[in-house]
Design a protein around this nucleic acid. Structure first.
Lengths: 300, 300
DNA sequence: ATTTCAGTTAAGTAAATCTTAATGATAATC
DNA sequence: GATTATCATTAAGATTTACTTAACTGAAAT
Protein backbone atom coordinates (compact mmCIF):
# COMPACT_ATOMS: atom_id res chain seq x y z
CA UNK A 1 0.00 0.00 0.00
CA UNK A 2 1.36 3.39 -0.92
CA UNK A 3 2.42 5.87 1.70
CA UNK A 4 -0.31 8.49 2.30
CA UNK A 5 2.09 11.36 1.76
CA UNK A 6 -0.46 14.12 1.61
CA UNK A 7 -2.17 12.95 4.77
CA UNK A 8 1.20 12.77 6.50
CA UNK A 9 1.97 16.32 5.50
CA UNK A 10 -1.37 17.39 6.89
CA UNK A 11 -0.62 15.50 10.09
CA UNK A 12 2.71 17.29 10.43
CA UNK A 13 1.06 20.65 9.91
CA UNK A 14 -1.53 19.98 12.60
CA UNK A 15 1.02 18.50 14.97
CA UNK A 16 3.42 21.36 14.67
CA UNK A 17 0.66 23.83 15.56
CA UNK A 18 -1.24 21.50 17.83
CA UNK A 19 -4.34 22.87 16.15
CA UNK A 20 -6.44 21.70 13.25
CA UNK A 21 -7.44 25.22 12.34
CA UNK A 22 -3.96 26.64 12.31
CA UNK A 23 -2.67 23.62 10.48
CA UNK A 24 -5.36 24.27 7.89
CA UNK A 25 -4.25 27.88 7.56
CA UNK A 26 -0.68 26.78 7.03
CA UNK A 27 -1.81 24.51 4.21
CA UNK A 28 -4.27 26.99 2.74
CA UNK A 29 -7.23 24.68 3.13
CA UNK A 30 -10.28 24.53 5.36
CA UNK A 31 -10.28 22.87 8.77
CA UNK A 32 -12.77 20.37 7.42
CA UNK A 33 -10.27 19.16 4.85
CA UNK A 34 -7.61 18.78 7.49
CA UNK A 35 -9.95 16.91 9.77
CA UNK A 36 -10.78 14.45 7.02
CA UNK A 37 -7.13 13.92 6.13
CA UNK A 38 -6.10 13.24 9.70
CA UNK A 39 -9.06 10.99 10.21
CA UNK A 40 -8.11 9.00 7.12
CA UNK A 41 -4.53 8.71 8.31
CA UNK A 42 -5.63 7.52 11.73
CA UNK A 43 -7.86 4.93 10.12
CA UNK A 44 -5.02 3.81 7.92
CA UNK A 45 -2.67 3.48 10.91
CA UNK A 46 -5.33 1.92 13.10
CA UNK A 47 -4.87 4.31 15.97
CA UNK A 48 -5.50 7.93 16.87
CA UNK A 49 -2.65 10.40 16.49
CA UNK A 50 -4.27 13.21 18.45
CA UNK A 51 -6.13 13.52 21.71
CA UNK A 52 -9.05 15.81 21.11
CA UNK A 53 -10.14 16.93 24.51
CA UNK A 54 -12.38 19.92 24.47
CA UNK A 55 -10.78 22.55 22.32
CA UNK A 56 -7.23 21.49 22.96
CA UNK A 57 -5.34 19.09 20.74
CA UNK A 58 -2.37 17.03 21.86
CA UNK A 59 -0.40 14.22 20.30
CA UNK A 60 -0.98 10.66 21.36
CA UNK A 61 2.04 8.47 22.02
CA UNK A 62 1.64 7.19 18.47
CA UNK A 63 1.52 10.72 17.13
CA UNK A 64 4.64 11.64 19.07
CA UNK A 65 6.40 8.61 17.69
CA UNK A 66 5.39 9.43 14.14
CA UNK A 67 5.99 13.16 14.02
CA UNK A 68 9.77 13.52 14.11
CA UNK A 69 10.45 11.16 11.23
CA UNK A 70 7.73 12.68 9.11
CA UNK A 71 9.01 16.17 9.80
CA UNK A 72 12.55 15.25 8.96
CA UNK A 73 11.46 13.55 5.76
CA UNK A 74 9.32 16.46 4.62
CA UNK A 75 12.07 18.93 5.40
CA UNK A 76 14.55 16.88 3.46
CA UNK A 77 12.31 16.75 0.42
CA UNK A 78 11.43 20.39 0.65
CA UNK A 79 15.10 21.36 0.82
CA UNK A 80 15.89 19.21 -2.19
CA UNK A 81 13.20 20.96 -4.21
CA UNK A 82 14.11 24.38 -2.91
CA UNK A 83 17.76 23.93 -3.77
CA UNK A 84 16.79 22.81 -7.25
CA UNK A 85 14.66 25.90 -7.60
CA UNK A 86 17.55 28.05 -6.43
CA UNK A 87 19.59 26.54 -9.20
CA UNK A 88 17.20 28.08 -11.67
CA UNK A 89 18.81 31.39 -10.84
CA UNK A 90 22.35 30.31 -10.08
CA UNK A 91 24.81 27.48 -10.34
CA UNK A 92 25.99 25.78 -13.47
CA UNK A 93 25.00 27.23 -16.84
CA UNK A 94 26.10 25.16 -19.81
CA UNK A 95 26.31 26.98 -23.12
CA UNK A 96 27.58 25.79 -26.44
CA UNK A 97 28.96 27.77 -29.37
CA UNK A 98 31.48 27.52 -32.15
CA UNK A 99 35.11 28.13 -31.15
CA UNK A 100 35.57 31.10 -33.47
CA UNK A 101 32.75 33.09 -31.91
CA UNK A 102 33.96 32.22 -28.43
CA UNK A 103 37.57 33.14 -29.07
CA UNK A 104 37.13 36.20 -31.23
CA UNK A 105 33.97 37.82 -30.01
CA UNK A 106 32.82 36.48 -26.66
CA UNK A 107 36.11 35.88 -24.87
CA UNK A 108 37.11 39.53 -24.47
CA UNK A 109 33.67 40.38 -23.08
CA UNK A 110 33.34 37.40 -20.77
CA UNK A 111 35.16 38.96 -17.83
CA UNK A 112 32.34 41.37 -17.19
CA UNK A 113 29.81 38.58 -17.04
CA UNK A 114 31.68 36.73 -14.33
CA UNK A 115 32.04 39.96 -12.42
CA UNK A 116 28.36 40.80 -12.57
CA UNK A 117 26.98 37.30 -12.04
CA UNK A 118 29.21 35.70 -9.45
CA UNK A 119 26.66 33.02 -8.57
CA UNK A 120 26.31 31.79 -12.12
CA UNK A 121 28.89 29.19 -13.00
CA UNK A 122 29.06 29.65 -16.76
CA UNK A 123 30.57 26.71 -18.59
CA UNK A 124 31.15 27.04 -22.29
CA UNK A 125 31.54 24.20 -24.70
CA UNK A 126 33.24 25.30 -27.90
CA UNK A 127 32.53 22.84 -30.66
CA UNK A 128 31.47 23.14 -34.24
CA UNK A 129 29.04 20.23 -33.86
CA UNK A 130 25.54 21.14 -32.77
CA UNK A 131 24.84 19.91 -29.25
CA UNK A 132 21.77 17.82 -28.51
CA UNK A 133 19.62 19.41 -25.88
CA UNK A 134 17.60 16.23 -25.42
CA UNK A 135 20.59 14.08 -24.56
CA UNK A 136 22.86 16.44 -22.70
CA UNK A 137 22.58 19.08 -20.03
CA UNK A 138 23.19 22.15 -22.15
CA UNK A 139 20.92 25.01 -21.30
CA UNK A 140 21.55 27.14 -24.36
CA UNK A 141 23.74 27.75 -27.36
CA UNK A 142 24.80 30.55 -29.64
CA UNK A 143 24.34 29.49 -33.22
CA UNK A 144 24.92 31.11 -36.58
CA UNK A 145 22.10 30.34 -38.93
CA UNK A 146 18.67 31.17 -40.22
CA UNK A 147 16.96 31.39 -36.84
CA UNK A 148 14.97 28.23 -37.42
CA UNK A 149 15.86 25.17 -35.38
CA UNK A 150 13.29 22.53 -34.64
CA UNK A 151 12.28 22.21 -30.97
CA UNK A 152 14.29 25.28 -30.06
CA UNK A 153 13.43 28.83 -29.26
CA UNK A 154 15.75 31.38 -30.84
CA UNK A 155 16.37 35.08 -30.52
CA UNK A 156 18.60 37.04 -32.85
CA UNK A 157 21.74 38.47 -31.32
CA UNK A 158 23.78 39.89 -34.17
CA UNK A 159 23.59 40.36 -37.88
CA UNK A 160 26.88 39.76 -39.61
CA UNK A 161 28.85 40.78 -42.60
CA UNK A 162 31.75 39.34 -44.53
CA UNK A 163 34.61 41.54 -45.52
CA UNK A 164 38.18 41.23 -46.85
CA UNK A 165 40.98 41.85 -44.39
CA UNK A 166 44.74 41.64 -44.31
CA UNK A 167 47.61 42.82 -42.17
CA UNK A 168 48.70 46.47 -42.49
CA UNK A 169 52.13 45.27 -43.60
CA UNK A 170 50.58 43.15 -46.32
CA UNK A 171 48.52 46.06 -47.57
CA UNK A 172 51.56 48.29 -47.61
CA UNK A 173 53.40 45.70 -49.64
CA UNK A 174 50.71 45.27 -52.29
CA UNK A 175 49.83 48.94 -52.40
CA UNK A 176 46.36 50.47 -52.34
CA UNK A 177 43.41 48.56 -53.74
CA UNK A 178 41.04 50.64 -55.87
CA UNK A 179 38.35 48.09 -56.73
CA UNK A 180 37.34 44.71 -55.31
CA UNK A 181 38.34 42.95 -58.49
CA UNK A 182 41.90 43.97 -57.80
CA UNK A 183 41.97 41.60 -54.82
CA UNK A 184 42.22 38.73 -57.25
CA UNK A 185 45.76 39.73 -58.02
CA UNK A 186 46.82 38.76 -54.52
CA UNK A 187 46.70 35.65 -52.42
CA UNK A 188 43.23 34.85 -51.09
CA UNK A 189 43.25 32.73 -47.97
CA UNK A 190 39.74 31.24 -48.14
CA UNK A 191 39.15 27.97 -49.89
CA UNK A 192 36.16 27.21 -52.06
CA UNK A 193 34.42 30.03 -50.36
CA UNK A 194 31.17 31.01 -51.90
CA UNK A 195 31.74 34.60 -50.85
CA UNK A 196 34.35 35.54 -53.40
CA UNK A 197 31.93 35.42 -56.32
CA UNK A 198 29.71 37.83 -54.42
CA UNK A 199 32.46 40.36 -54.32
CA UNK A 200 33.39 40.19 -57.96
CA UNK A 201 30.22 40.93 -59.82
CA UNK A 202 29.61 39.44 -63.14
CA UNK A 203 30.11 35.90 -64.43
CA UNK A 204 33.61 36.46 -65.78
CA UNK A 205 35.54 35.37 -62.68
CA UNK A 206 39.26 35.56 -63.09
CA UNK A 207 41.36 32.59 -62.03
CA UNK A 208 42.86 32.80 -58.57
CA UNK A 209 46.55 33.31 -58.01
CA UNK A 210 48.02 31.20 -55.24
CA UNK A 211 50.96 32.46 -53.23
CA UNK A 212 50.19 30.74 -49.91
CA UNK A 213 48.00 28.47 -47.87
CA UNK A 214 44.26 28.05 -48.38
CA UNK A 215 42.36 27.58 -45.16
CA UNK A 216 38.99 26.40 -44.04
CA UNK A 217 38.13 27.80 -40.69
CA UNK A 218 37.65 31.36 -39.64
CA UNK A 219 40.14 31.38 -36.80
CA UNK A 220 42.94 30.08 -39.00
CA UNK A 221 42.16 32.50 -41.79
CA UNK A 222 42.23 35.38 -39.37
CA UNK A 223 45.51 34.20 -37.92
CA UNK A 224 47.00 33.85 -41.42
CA UNK A 225 45.81 37.30 -42.39
CA UNK A 226 47.31 38.80 -39.24
CA UNK A 227 50.59 37.17 -40.10
CA UNK A 228 50.56 38.75 -43.55
CA UNK A 229 49.92 35.55 -45.45
CA UNK A 230 47.27 37.05 -47.65
CA UNK A 231 43.79 38.43 -47.79
CA UNK A 232 40.97 36.73 -45.91
CA UNK A 233 37.25 37.02 -46.32
CA UNK A 234 36.02 36.94 -42.77
CA UNK A 235 33.12 37.82 -40.55
CA UNK A 236 32.90 41.27 -39.18
CA UNK A 237 32.02 39.97 -35.74
CA UNK A 238 35.26 38.02 -35.56
CA UNK A 239 37.64 40.74 -36.66
CA UNK A 240 36.07 43.94 -35.45
CA UNK A 241 38.49 44.02 -32.52
CA UNK A 242 41.51 43.39 -34.75
CA UNK A 243 40.42 46.14 -37.10
CA UNK A 244 39.91 48.45 -34.16
CA UNK A 245 43.37 47.75 -32.82
CA UNK A 246 44.94 47.98 -36.25
CA UNK A 247 46.27 44.44 -36.25
CA UNK A 248 44.14 43.96 -39.34
CA UNK A 249 43.08 46.45 -41.96
CA UNK A 250 40.51 46.50 -44.74
CA UNK A 251 42.13 46.67 -48.22
CA UNK A 252 38.77 47.81 -49.66
CA UNK A 253 35.72 49.09 -47.77
CA UNK A 254 33.34 46.48 -49.12
CA UNK A 255 31.08 44.38 -46.89
CA UNK A 256 28.59 41.69 -47.70
CA UNK A 257 25.73 41.23 -45.33
CA UNK A 258 25.23 37.61 -44.44
CA UNK A 259 21.83 36.12 -44.93
CA UNK A 260 22.44 34.32 -41.60
CA UNK A 261 22.85 35.80 -38.17
CA UNK A 262 23.90 34.84 -34.66
CA UNK A 263 21.07 33.57 -32.54
CA UNK A 264 20.71 32.71 -28.93
CA UNK A 265 18.91 29.37 -28.85
CA UNK A 266 17.58 27.19 -26.07
CA UNK A 267 14.83 24.62 -25.53
CA UNK A 268 11.62 26.39 -24.60
CA UNK A 269 11.85 25.15 -21.00
CA UNK A 270 15.29 26.63 -20.51
CA UNK A 271 14.83 29.80 -22.53
CA UNK A 272 13.29 31.80 -19.71
CA UNK A 273 15.00 30.09 -16.79
CA UNK A 274 16.41 32.93 -14.70
CA UNK A 275 20.09 32.18 -15.09
CA UNK A 276 19.65 31.55 -18.81
CA UNK A 277 17.75 34.79 -19.20
CA UNK A 278 20.43 36.65 -17.26
CA UNK A 279 23.07 35.40 -19.64
CA UNK A 280 20.91 36.15 -22.64
CA UNK A 281 20.19 39.72 -21.63
CA UNK A 282 23.85 40.30 -20.82
CA UNK A 283 24.64 39.03 -24.32
CA UNK A 284 22.04 41.28 -25.85
CA UNK A 285 23.55 44.24 -24.06
CA UNK A 286 26.97 43.35 -25.46
CA UNK A 287 25.47 43.06 -28.92
CA UNK A 288 23.81 46.44 -28.70
CA UNK A 289 27.19 47.93 -27.84
CA UNK A 290 28.82 46.21 -30.77
CA UNK A 291 29.14 48.48 -33.78
CA UNK A 292 28.32 47.52 -37.34
CA UNK A 293 30.82 47.96 -40.20
CA UNK A 294 30.73 51.48 -41.65
CA UNK A 295 30.17 50.73 -45.31
CA UNK A 296 27.54 48.28 -46.38
CA UNK A 297 27.75 47.38 -50.03
CA UNK A 298 25.50 44.52 -50.93
CA UNK A 299 22.80 42.43 -49.36
CA UNK A 300 23.13 38.71 -49.40
CA UNK B 1 2.69 26.43 -3.48
CA UNK B 2 2.52 23.00 -1.92
CA UNK B 3 5.15 20.38 -2.53
CA UNK B 4 4.05 17.88 -5.20
CA UNK B 5 4.77 14.91 -2.96
CA UNK B 6 3.12 12.26 -5.10
CA UNK B 7 4.87 13.43 -8.23
CA UNK B 8 8.18 13.40 -6.36
CA UNK B 9 7.58 9.85 -5.25
CA UNK B 10 6.88 8.90 -8.85
CA UNK B 11 10.05 10.68 -9.93
CA UNK B 12 12.06 8.74 -7.36
CA UNK B 13 10.58 5.46 -8.54
CA UNK B 14 11.43 6.18 -12.16
CA UNK B 15 14.87 7.49 -11.30
CA UNK B 16 15.80 4.51 -9.20
CA UNK B 17 14.90 2.16 -12.06
CA UNK B 18 15.86 4.52 -14.85
CA UNK B 19 12.70 3.34 -16.56
CA UNK B 20 9.18 4.67 -16.67
CA UNK B 21 7.71 1.20 -17.09
CA UNK B 22 9.55 -0.36 -14.20
CA UNK B 23 8.87 2.64 -12.05
CA UNK B 24 5.21 2.20 -12.88
CA UNK B 25 5.36 -1.45 -11.85
CA UNK B 26 6.95 -0.49 -8.55
CA UNK B 27 4.08 1.89 -7.90
CA UNK B 28 1.41 -0.44 -9.21
CA UNK B 29 0.20 1.97 -11.84
CA UNK B 30 0.39 2.20 -15.60
CA UNK B 31 3.31 3.78 -17.44
CA UNK B 32 0.93 6.42 -18.71
CA UNK B 33 0.21 7.57 -15.19
CA UNK B 34 3.90 7.77 -14.40
CA UNK B 35 4.60 9.68 -17.57
CA UNK B 36 1.97 12.24 -16.70
CA UNK B 37 3.25 12.63 -13.15
CA UNK B 38 6.83 13.18 -14.22
CA UNK B 39 5.73 15.56 -16.91
CA UNK B 40 3.75 17.57 -14.38
CA UNK B 41 6.73 17.68 -12.05
CA UNK B 42 9.04 18.84 -14.81
CA UNK B 43 6.59 21.57 -15.73
CA UNK B 44 6.36 22.60 -12.13
CA UNK B 45 10.14 22.78 -11.79
CA UNK B 46 10.58 24.40 -15.19
CA UNK B 47 13.13 21.90 -16.41
CA UNK B 48 13.38 18.30 -17.52
CA UNK B 49 14.49 15.72 -14.99
CA UNK B 50 15.13 12.93 -17.48
CA UNK B 51 16.81 12.63 -20.83
CA UNK B 52 14.59 10.47 -22.98
CA UNK B 53 16.77 9.33 -25.77
CA UNK B 54 15.28 6.47 -27.64
CA UNK B 55 14.25 3.85 -25.21
CA UNK B 56 16.85 4.69 -22.60
CA UNK B 57 16.16 7.05 -19.77
CA UNK B 58 18.82 8.94 -17.84
CA UNK B 59 18.75 11.69 -15.28
CA UNK B 60 19.47 15.27 -16.27
CA UNK B 61 21.77 17.29 -14.05
CA UNK B 62 18.66 18.67 -12.41
CA UNK B 63 17.31 15.19 -11.84
CA UNK B 64 20.58 14.08 -10.34
CA UNK B 65 20.55 17.06 -8.04
CA UNK B 66 16.99 16.37 -6.96
CA UNK B 67 17.06 12.62 -6.48
CA UNK B 68 19.18 12.08 -3.37
CA UNK B 69 17.25 14.47 -1.17
CA UNK B 70 13.92 13.14 -2.32
CA UNK B 71 15.03 9.58 -1.72
CA UNK B 72 16.32 10.38 1.73
CA UNK B 73 13.12 12.17 2.61
CA UNK B 74 10.87 9.41 1.38
CA UNK B 75 12.90 6.79 3.19
CA UNK B 76 12.74 8.78 6.38
CA UNK B 77 8.98 9.08 6.18
CA UNK B 78 8.52 5.48 5.23
CA UNK B 79 10.62 4.35 8.16
CA UNK B 80 8.65 6.52 10.53
CA UNK B 81 5.41 4.96 9.35
CA UNK B 82 6.83 1.47 9.32
CA UNK B 83 8.15 1.76 12.85
CA UNK B 84 4.76 3.02 13.98
CA UNK B 85 3.16 0.03 12.31
CA UNK B 86 5.61 -2.27 14.02
CA UNK B 87 4.51 -0.79 17.29
CA UNK B 88 1.07 -2.15 16.62
CA UNK B 89 2.50 -5.55 17.42
CA UNK B 90 5.10 -4.63 20.00
CA UNK B 91 6.35 -1.92 22.30
CA UNK B 92 4.46 -0.20 25.04
CA UNK B 93 1.03 -1.54 26.01
CA UNK B 94 -0.77 0.53 28.61
CA UNK B 95 -3.51 -1.23 30.55
CA UNK B 96 -5.53 -0.04 33.47
CA UNK B 97 -7.35 -2.06 36.17
CA UNK B 98 -8.30 -1.87 39.81
CA UNK B 99 -5.50 -2.69 42.29
CA UNK B 100 -7.35 -5.63 43.84
CA UNK B 101 -7.63 -7.50 40.56
CA UNK B 102 -4.05 -6.77 39.72
CA UNK B 103 -2.68 -7.84 43.08
CA UNK B 104 -4.83 -10.85 43.79
CA UNK B 105 -5.58 -12.33 40.39
CA UNK B 106 -3.34 -11.00 37.66
CA UNK B 107 -0.03 -10.58 39.48
CA UNK B 108 0.70 -14.30 39.96
CA UNK B 109 -0.01 -14.99 36.30
CA UNK B 110 1.85 -12.04 34.84
CA UNK B 111 5.23 -13.72 34.73
CA UNK B 112 4.15 -16.02 31.96
CA UNK B 113 3.02 -13.11 29.81
CA UNK B 114 6.38 -11.39 29.95
CA UNK B 115 8.03 -14.68 29.12
CA UNK B 116 5.86 -15.34 26.09
CA UNK B 117 5.71 -11.79 24.74
CA UNK B 118 9.15 -10.35 25.24
CA UNK B 119 8.61 -7.58 22.70
CA UNK B 120 5.50 -6.25 24.39
CA UNK B 121 6.30 -3.76 27.10
CA UNK B 122 3.20 -4.16 29.30
CA UNK B 123 2.60 -1.25 31.64
CA UNK B 124 -0.18 -1.55 34.15
CA UNK B 125 -1.86 1.31 35.87
CA UNK B 126 -3.70 0.18 39.02
CA UNK B 127 -6.28 2.73 39.98
CA UNK B 128 -9.88 2.55 41.06
CA UNK B 129 -10.73 5.56 38.89
CA UNK B 130 -11.76 4.83 35.32
CA UNK B 131 -9.14 6.02 32.84
CA UNK B 132 -10.09 8.24 29.94
CA UNK B 133 -9.13 6.72 26.65
CA UNK B 134 -9.69 9.98 24.81
CA UNK B 135 -7.26 11.97 26.90
CA UNK B 136 -4.55 9.46 27.71
CA UNK B 137 -2.60 6.78 25.95
CA UNK B 138 -4.18 3.74 27.53
CA UNK B 139 -4.83 0.97 25.09
CA UNK B 140 -7.15 -1.14 27.21
CA UNK B 141 -8.51 -1.80 30.68
CA UNK B 142 -9.96 -4.61 32.72
CA UNK B 143 -13.16 -3.45 34.31
CA UNK B 144 -15.73 -5.04 36.57
CA UNK B 145 -19.21 -4.10 35.49
CA UNK B 146 -22.17 -4.72 33.29
CA UNK B 147 -20.30 -4.93 30.01
CA UNK B 148 -21.71 -1.65 28.76
CA UNK B 149 -19.39 1.33 28.51
CA UNK B 150 -20.05 4.10 26.04
CA UNK B 151 -17.51 4.37 23.21
CA UNK B 152 -15.78 1.19 24.30
CA UNK B 153 -15.75 -2.33 23.02
CA UNK B 154 -15.92 -4.97 25.75
CA UNK B 155 -15.46 -8.70 25.96
CA UNK B 156 -16.29 -10.72 29.04
CA UNK B 157 -13.35 -12.32 30.80
CA UNK B 158 -14.68 -13.80 34.03
CA UNK B 159 -17.94 -14.19 35.85
CA UNK B 160 -17.57 -13.74 39.54
CA UNK B 161 -19.06 -14.82 42.82
CA UNK B 162 -19.08 -13.49 46.34
CA UNK B 163 -18.47 -15.85 49.22
CA UNK B 164 -17.64 -15.68 52.93
CA UNK B 165 -14.09 -16.50 53.96
CA UNK B 166 -12.00 -16.49 57.11
CA UNK B 167 -8.71 -17.84 58.34
CA UNK B 168 -8.53 -21.52 59.29
CA UNK B 169 -7.60 -20.49 62.84
CA UNK B 170 -10.63 -18.26 63.07
CA UNK B 171 -12.91 -21.04 61.90
CA UNK B 172 -11.41 -23.42 64.41
CA UNK B 173 -11.99 -20.90 67.16
CA UNK B 174 -15.65 -20.30 66.34
CA UNK B 175 -16.38 -23.89 65.49
CA UNK B 176 -18.25 -25.29 62.50
CA UNK B 177 -20.93 -23.19 60.81
CA UNK B 178 -24.09 -25.11 59.89
CA UNK B 179 -26.18 -22.42 58.17
CA UNK B 180 -25.34 -19.02 56.65
CA UNK B 181 -27.44 -17.25 59.27
CA UNK B 182 -25.00 -18.47 61.88
CA UNK B 183 -22.36 -16.16 60.44
CA UNK B 184 -24.15 -13.27 62.04
CA UNK B 185 -22.96 -14.43 65.41
CA UNK B 186 -19.42 -13.58 64.45
CA UNK B 187 -17.57 -10.50 63.31
CA UNK B 188 -18.28 -9.55 59.71
CA UNK B 189 -15.54 -7.47 58.15
CA UNK B 190 -17.53 -5.81 55.32
CA UNK B 191 -19.19 -2.47 55.88
CA UNK B 192 -22.59 -1.56 54.57
CA UNK B 193 -22.19 -4.28 52.05
CA UNK B 194 -25.27 -5.12 50.12
CA UNK B 195 -24.20 -8.74 49.90
CA UNK B 196 -24.98 -9.78 53.46
CA UNK B 197 -28.75 -9.50 52.99
CA UNK B 198 -28.45 -11.78 50.01
CA UNK B 199 -26.99 -14.47 52.17
CA UNK B 200 -29.56 -14.33 54.89
CA UNK B 201 -32.83 -14.91 53.19
CA UNK B 202 -35.94 -13.37 54.53
CA UNK B 203 -36.61 -9.88 55.77
CA UNK B 204 -35.89 -10.61 59.43
CA UNK B 205 -32.22 -9.59 59.43
CA UNK B 206 -30.55 -9.92 62.77
CA UNK B 207 -28.45 -7.04 64.08
CA UNK B 208 -24.73 -7.42 63.50
CA UNK B 209 -22.31 -8.08 66.25
CA UNK B 210 -19.10 -6.09 66.08
CA UNK B 211 -15.89 -7.50 67.44
CA UNK B 212 -13.40 -5.82 65.14
CA UNK B 213 -12.78 -3.45 62.23
CA UNK B 214 -15.17 -2.84 59.36
CA UNK B 215 -13.45 -2.31 56.04
CA UNK B 216 -14.26 -0.98 52.65
CA UNK B 217 -11.96 -2.37 50.05
CA UNK B 218 -11.44 -5.92 48.96
CA UNK B 219 -7.72 -6.12 49.51
CA UNK B 220 -8.02 -4.92 53.11
CA UNK B 221 -10.89 -7.26 53.88
CA UNK B 222 -8.92 -10.20 52.56
CA UNK B 223 -5.89 -9.18 54.57
CA UNK B 224 -8.03 -8.85 57.71
CA UNK B 225 -9.63 -12.25 57.12
CA UNK B 226 -6.24 -13.86 56.66
CA UNK B 227 -5.14 -12.39 59.95
CA UNK B 228 -8.14 -13.91 61.73
CA UNK B 229 -9.95 -10.66 62.32
CA UNK B 230 -13.31 -11.97 61.21
CA UNK B 231 -15.33 -13.17 58.26
CA UNK B 232 -15.15 -11.38 54.94
CA UNK B 233 -17.54 -11.44 52.03
CA UNK B 234 -15.18 -11.35 49.07
CA UNK B 235 -14.92 -12.10 45.41
CA UNK B 236 -14.01 -15.57 44.34
CA UNK B 237 -11.55 -14.28 41.80
CA UNK B 238 -9.57 -12.48 44.49
CA UNK B 239 -9.33 -15.32 47.02
CA UNK B 240 -9.26 -18.46 44.92
CA UNK B 241 -5.50 -18.69 45.39
CA UNK B 242 -5.74 -18.18 49.16
CA UNK B 243 -8.42 -20.85 49.44
CA UNK B 244 -6.29 -23.17 47.35
CA UNK B 245 -3.29 -22.68 49.57
CA UNK B 246 -5.35 -22.94 52.74
CA UNK B 247 -4.50 -19.47 53.97
CA UNK B 248 -8.23 -18.85 53.86
CA UNK B 249 -11.10 -21.22 54.29
CA UNK B 250 -14.81 -21.10 53.61
CA UNK B 251 -16.89 -21.33 56.82
CA UNK B 252 -19.96 -22.26 54.73
CA UNK B 253 -20.07 -23.42 51.12
CA UNK B 254 -22.39 -20.68 49.91
CA UNK B 255 -21.63 -18.48 46.90
CA UNK B 256 -23.55 -15.67 45.30
CA UNK B 257 -23.06 -15.07 41.65
CA UNK B 258 -22.44 -11.43 40.87
CA UNK B 259 -24.62 -9.76 38.32
CA UNK B 260 -21.42 -8.04 37.12
CA UNK B 261 -18.38 -9.60 35.56
CA UNK B 262 -14.84 -8.76 34.55
CA UNK B 263 -14.54 -7.37 31.07
CA UNK B 264 -11.66 -6.57 28.82
CA UNK B 265 -12.42 -3.14 27.39
CA UNK B 266 -10.74 -0.95 24.82
CA UNK B 267 -11.68 1.73 22.30
CA UNK B 268 -12.72 0.11 19.06
CA UNK B 269 -9.54 1.26 17.30
CA UNK B 270 -7.32 -0.39 19.88
CA UNK B 271 -9.38 -3.49 20.49
CA UNK B 272 -7.95 -5.47 17.62
CA UNK B 273 -4.51 -3.91 17.52
CA UNK B 274 -2.11 -6.86 17.47
CA UNK B 275 -0.39 -6.29 20.78
CA UNK B 276 -3.69 -5.56 22.46
CA UNK B 277 -5.21 -8.69 20.97
CA UNK B 278 -2.21 -10.71 22.12
CA UNK B 279 -2.71 -9.54 25.66
CA UNK B 280 -6.42 -10.15 25.46
CA UNK B 281 -6.12 -13.67 24.21
CA UNK B 282 -3.46 -14.45 26.81
CA UNK B 283 -5.91 -13.15 29.42
CA UNK B 284 -8.71 -15.25 28.00
CA UNK B 285 -6.51 -18.29 28.18
CA UNK B 286 -5.79 -17.57 31.84
CA UNK B 287 -9.50 -17.14 32.47
CA UNK B 288 -10.36 -20.44 30.85
CA UNK B 289 -7.85 -22.13 33.15
CA UNK B 290 -9.35 -20.42 36.17
CA UNK B 291 -11.80 -22.67 37.99
CA UNK B 292 -15.21 -21.60 39.28
CA UNK B 293 -16.26 -22.11 42.92
CA UNK B 294 -17.56 -25.64 43.51
CA UNK B 295 -20.92 -24.82 45.00
CA UNK B 296 -23.15 -22.23 43.41
CA UNK B 297 -26.14 -21.32 45.54
CA UNK B 298 -28.06 -18.41 44.20
CA UNK B 299 -28.16 -16.26 41.10
CA UNK B 300 -28.12 -12.57 41.54
C1' DA C 1 -27.15 31.86 30.33
C1' DT C 2 -25.04 33.17 26.19
C1' DT C 3 -21.49 33.58 23.09
C1' DT C 4 -17.32 32.07 20.99
C1' DC C 5 -14.14 28.96 19.38
C1' DA C 6 -12.53 24.61 17.50
C1' DG C 7 -13.28 20.28 15.53
C1' DT C 8 -16.54 17.32 13.10
C1' DT C 9 -19.95 15.75 9.78
C1' DA C 10 -22.46 15.32 5.45
C1' DA C 11 -23.25 16.58 0.88
C1' DG C 12 -21.76 18.20 -3.11
C1' DT C 13 -17.97 19.97 -6.11
C1' DA C 14 -13.45 20.38 -7.90
C1' DA C 15 -9.15 18.48 -8.82
C1' DA C 16 -5.90 14.92 -9.03
C1' DT C 17 -4.80 10.62 -10.51
C1' DC C 18 -5.40 6.61 -13.03
C1' DT C 19 -6.72 3.51 -17.07
C1' DT C 20 -7.51 2.33 -21.71
C1' DA C 21 -6.30 2.52 -26.30
C1' DA C 22 -3.84 4.42 -29.89
C1' DT C 23 0.67 6.56 -31.58
C1' DG C 24 5.43 7.17 -32.55
C1' DA C 25 9.92 6.12 -32.27
C1' DT C 26 13.83 3.32 -31.17
C1' DA C 27 16.23 -1.09 -30.58
C1' DA C 28 16.28 -5.94 -31.50
C1' DT C 29 15.26 -9.83 -34.45
C1' DC C 30 14.80 -12.30 -38.51
C1' DG D 1 16.46 -4.40 -44.90
C1' DA D 2 12.03 -5.52 -43.30
C1' DT D 3 9.67 -6.95 -39.24
C1' DT D 4 8.77 -7.27 -34.55
C1' DA D 5 9.15 -5.87 -29.68
C1' DT D 6 9.73 -2.54 -26.41
C1' DC D 7 9.12 1.82 -24.32
C1' DA D 8 7.46 6.33 -23.63
C1' DT D 9 3.77 9.42 -24.88
C1' DT D 10 -0.77 11.25 -25.89
C1' DA D 11 -5.70 11.98 -25.59
C1' DA D 12 -10.06 10.80 -23.76
C1' DG D 13 -12.61 9.28 -20.24
C1' DA D 14 -13.36 7.19 -15.65
C1' DT D 15 -12.30 7.01 -10.96
C1' DT D 16 -10.57 8.34 -6.86
C1' DT D 17 -8.92 11.81 -3.84
C1' DA D 18 -9.16 16.14 -1.95
C1' DC D 19 -11.57 20.19 -0.96
C1' DT D 20 -15.44 23.52 0.17
C1' DT D 21 -19.65 24.89 2.07
C1' DA D 22 -22.87 24.79 5.60
C1' DA D 23 -24.78 22.92 9.53
C1' DC D 24 -23.71 20.78 13.97
C1' DT D 25 -21.54 19.66 18.58
C1' DG D 26 -19.48 20.50 22.62
C1' DA D 27 -16.29 22.78 25.58
C1' DA D 28 -14.52 27.16 27.18
C1' DA D 29 -15.09 32.02 27.87
C1' DT D 30 -17.93 36.06 28.66
Amino acid sequence: MRLPLNALRTFAAVASHLSFSRGAEALNVTPAAVSAQVRALEDRLGQPLFHRTGRTVTLTAAGQALLPGVQRGLTEISQAVRSLEEYNAQGVLNVSMVPAFLQKWLMPRLGSFYQIHRTIDLRINADTALVSFTETDFHAAIRFGSGQWPELKAKKLLDDWKLPVCSPQFLQKIGPIKAPEQLLEHHLLNGEDEVWPLLFKGPEEAPRRRHGPILDDSVSIIAAAEQGQGIGMVRWSLVAAELESGRLVRPVPVTIKSRFAYYFVAPHYYFDMPKVAEFRSWLEECCRAFKTPEAVDSER
